[in-house]
Design a protein around this nucleic acid. Structure first.
Length: 426
DNA sequence: TCTGGGGTCCTAGGACCC
DNA sequence: TCTGGGGTCCTAGGACCC
């Protein structure tokens, strides 16, 4: 059996933690650049504020109803996420926990006797809520997909389920599948939901589960669909992921706070992003062989998102894998210069690192000199930046003023990760 | 005027090799 | 006129997730 523990309106929950005055009020959190609404409390959902819609389109509704609005504060959310995951590990055993996202974890419950599943789910929920103050919902079922279905059901029916749904009999599974719309199944996105409804007339998860595997292979993305159907039918085939696995692509991409044309500013932005990406790379003890850079102009034609990455995109294969910030900056800035067209208004830029290998297996290139000193230098800088604060030591090419930086006008204090921003209490 | 960011997996098709 | 077959690797694109 698997459990999924999922935080309720996670980002909003983090904001409320230090603001008891808004604990019962509607709250929303915005994406980077204060662009879209990416987290809503139940009170905000009731007002008709939808997920992922642009902030400006809801501004009137928000102001009229005195909704509290926050820019995203990733320092705060990241720190609380780490505490939640540590709590789950302590209750369920570290080896049984898969951190699935910033606010969710799967837990392998094979060692828990069937009769104790409900009690275990309660313990997980109560401990996280008591130790961190963040509310969670728990779904338990024989497969990961069914545990997500159970979790979704418990969130939709908070009162009758008390935030916990254990699917331990065929009858319970069937009735919850019947109550789950096709579009709410983990693995069915917008495209498939439309198609399943329009072409095949499927409405709920129970109906989907009765389709034959060959049909899924043909109409639901091949083997992916076959697995999804098997999981819905209680046959587990998506297992806990190995926590030691490393990322295969590392990206840092951002909207600018305003349109940018100046090559100087584009260079600064790309140098800043690649510095971040290189830190992520070294943190997982990897090196990269492929570096990609893109810049983007306005991607919206009226309200349609429309962009052609090929025209703004360049990539380069490095002569040997690298994790050295100055070296990566050098290549990234060159690529950005090749891309840049004068008097073009760019709104976004990004860098991606791939071709990732372990940093201890870097193949020496016969034609290039070795760079052991680089590695020590990077380690020293990371130690200072990770332990004190980001950007304690920075690269001149990343710029000092960063006029292009994203807007974050409504960010709350970083209560738990900055001495200067600790909350006060009397 | 204002529209996020960072990932995953799978498949098809072309290039290339013997 | 007739023009192999099988394997591997890479890339682009399509779907999905939170």
């Amino acid at each position: 059996m698997y459990a999924i523990v999922d935080c309720n309106s996670f980002y909003c929950g983090c904001e409320r933690l230090f603001r008891p005055d808004i604990s019962k009020k509607p709250v929303v959190v915005l994406s980077n650049n204060d662009g879209c609404i990416i987290s809503r409390t139940d009170e905000a959902k009731l007002l008709g504020i939808d997920m992922a819609v642009p902030y400006y389109q809801n501004k009137e509704l928000i102001e009229k109803n005195k909704v509290s609005v926050f820019s995203s504060n990733y320092n705060l959310y990241g720190d609380l996420s780490a505490r939640i995951m540590a709590t789950l590990s302590q209750v369920a055993g570290k080896e049984n926990v898969e951190v699935y996202s910033v606010d969710e974890a799967f837990i392998d419950l094979h060692q828990v006797p069937e009769k104790d599943l409900q009690k275990m789910a309660e313990r997980l929920k109560e401990t996280v809520e008591m130790w961190t103050g963040i509310m969670v919902s728990v779904g338990v079922a024989p497969t990961k997909v069914l545990s997500k279905v159970a979790n979704h059901f418990s969130k939709k029916n908070k009162v009758s389920t008390a935030g916990i749904m254990v699917l331990d009999t065929p009858e319970k599974i069937h009735s919850v599948l019947q109550a789950t719309g096709i579009e709410s199944i983990w693995g069915i996105g917008r495209r498939y939901a439309l198609k399943l409804h329009a072409v095949f007339g499927l409405e709920n998860a129970a109906e989907l589960s009765r389709m034959p595997p060959e049909w899924a292979r043909k109409n639901l993305g091949g083997i992916v669909g076959v697995r999804l159907l098997a999981e819905l039918n209680g046959q587990s085939c998506i297992y806990l992921k190995n926590p030691l696995e490393k990322k295969k692509r590392i990206a840092t991409t951002r909207m600018f706070g305003r349109p940018v044309s100046d090559i100087k500013e584009i260079r600064e932005a790309v140098a800043t992003y690649i510095t971040r990406a290189a830190e992520k790379l070294r943190r997982q003890r990897s090196a990269a062989t492929i570096i990609e850079v893109f810049v983007m102009t306005n991607a919206y034609v009226n309200t349609e998102y429309e962009y052609n990455p090929a025209s703004y995109y360049r990539s380069r294969q490095l002569p040997q894998p690298s994790a050295s910030t100055p070296e990566l900056i050098h290549h990234a800035v060159q690529l950005a210069e090749e891309l840049h067209r004068p008097s073009t208004r760019y709104l976004k830029a990004g860098v991606l690192l791939s071709g990732i290998v372990p940093d201890n297996s870097i193949q020496a290139n016969l034609f290039l000199p070795p760079v052991p000193a680089q590695k020590q230098l990077m380690e020293a800088i990371d130690n200072i930046n990770f332990s004190m604060r980001n950007d304690m030591i920075k690269y001149a090419s990343a710029g000092l003023h960063k006029h292009w930086k994203m807007r974050q006008e409504l960010r709350s204090p970083r209560y738990t990760t900055r001495w200067e921003e600790l909350p006060f209490t009397r």
